[in-house]
Design a protein around this nucleic acid. Sequence first.
DNA 1: ACCGAAATTTAGTCATGGCTAAATTATATA
DNA 2: TATATAATTTAGCCATGACTAAATTTCGGT
Lengths: 226, 226
Amino acid sequence: MANKIAPLSAAMEDYLKAIYLVRGSAAAATTMVLAATLGVSAASVTNMIKKLAVLKLVRHAPYHGVELTPAGEKIALEIVRHHRLLEAFLHDALGLPWDEVHGEAHKLEHVLSDNLEDHIAEYLGDPSVDPHGDPIPTKAGVVVTSAQHTLAELAPGARAVIVRVGAQDPAHLRYLRELGLVPQARLVVLACAPFGGPVRVRVRTRQVALDEPLARQIWVNVARKK
Amino acid sequence: MANKIAPLSAAMEDYLKAIYLVRGSAAAATTMVLAATLGVSAASVTNMIKKLAVLKLVRHAPYHGVELTPAGEKIALEIVRHHRLLEAFLHDALGLPWDEVHGEAHKLEHVLSDNLEDHIAEYLGDPSVDPHGDPIPTKAGVVVTSAQHTLAELAPGARAVIVRVGAQDPAHLRYLRELGLVPQARLVVLACAPFGGPVRVRVRTRQVALDEPLARQIWVNVARKK
DNA sequence: ACCGAAATTTAGTCATGGCTAAATTATATA
DNA sequence: TATATAATTTAGCCATGACTAAATTTCGGT
Ligand SMILES: [Mn+2]
Ligand SMILES: [Mn+2]
Ligand SMILES: [Mn+2]
Ligand SMILES: [Mn+2]
């Protein structure tokens, strides 16, 4: 008597996750944006969106965007949890560098059973963030985000702790890792040029200059005045 | 100028692995056997075999069996290595019971990168066997098998060490685990009925009776005379 | 040597998830 | 407000890997 629960394909899961992430960044989940995010053609996106709409996982306003239904968001959150839990596991347990975990997790996330997910979560002590500082949704689907500011918004003299690094590109991640610009790192803003100029910060004993696009990917919590 | 290396699909990998395992048990890799092993129709097997033959991964004698070419065996061994390494990791690192690791590994094996494979092998200290005692092929494709006898072949009074448990069925595996009949366990044969009758053995302090089909799945090394 | 059963292959179909090219709709600009 | 451009959808195609049903081949028994 229960619902026919056809298991979703990896492709469907990737679409739902992409919609969730795009919407989470305040952008509209348009056909083009999803096509770019997923690396497929716009026609493919339209095609899949129609299937997901039939399954009541998204609401589709043709020629406008797409929204996740509660059922769709639930699944998206499961996949995001898989992904970030796997990133944490690969990084913390197996020592993969943080620029490599995303690609591996992207493949593993669709193949992770509930049972294995639980074992991994327990092994890690139920972590709340992944190696990039992205929040790991709980099993119940609760997401806790903390950072309010990016490095690009801080004034000279500000002290802050890195909470999340939004950069995805492996080369950028390796570069930031080398500079010590990782979650938990404390830093002081030395100077920042106006109108999108570079930001100069001190991390530990090192001084670093970051151009504005990169600085806007680094989310921080401002430390209380000393 | 290098070969076009089209990556194989998970389905192709499963077929190659199945052919390798069937051949390894001395049986002919016929269409029917492969269909039963893989849980697909005979027509599907014929279909895939033809594709693999085009790729020079198998040699197909129509209406007779199929054989792996050296190239096909190389890939099969990689997948078997993935599978068993993953079983060992899930069991030893994450504490999954030995009757659950097979199903998980079957999904993960196709999605394991070379890099991650190396990290897992290093984490485990390059294990030579999986939780069932099946040999893990080396990266170079070397397989070391040791057991020569099964429990069903031993005479009363024989002392032996379990090397490998060939049973696949989760219920059987749970039962054997409960009895302590796992790799490394030492046992003494107390009695064995002729003509396929049950075998009585002592493991630790417990006495156990096993019917012959199950006893033939338990591979042992006979201990030297005391 | 033949015949029938079993195994295998062939033929034709379907679902999935890509793609390109063409048609359609929305929107920004003049 | 009309129109050019951009975004989106539609239409039609392809590869993969399943399936069933029908044809074909092999092989054991007489
Ligand atoms: Mn994915
Ligand atoms: Mn991440
Ligand atoms: Mn498999
Ligand atoms: Mn095994």
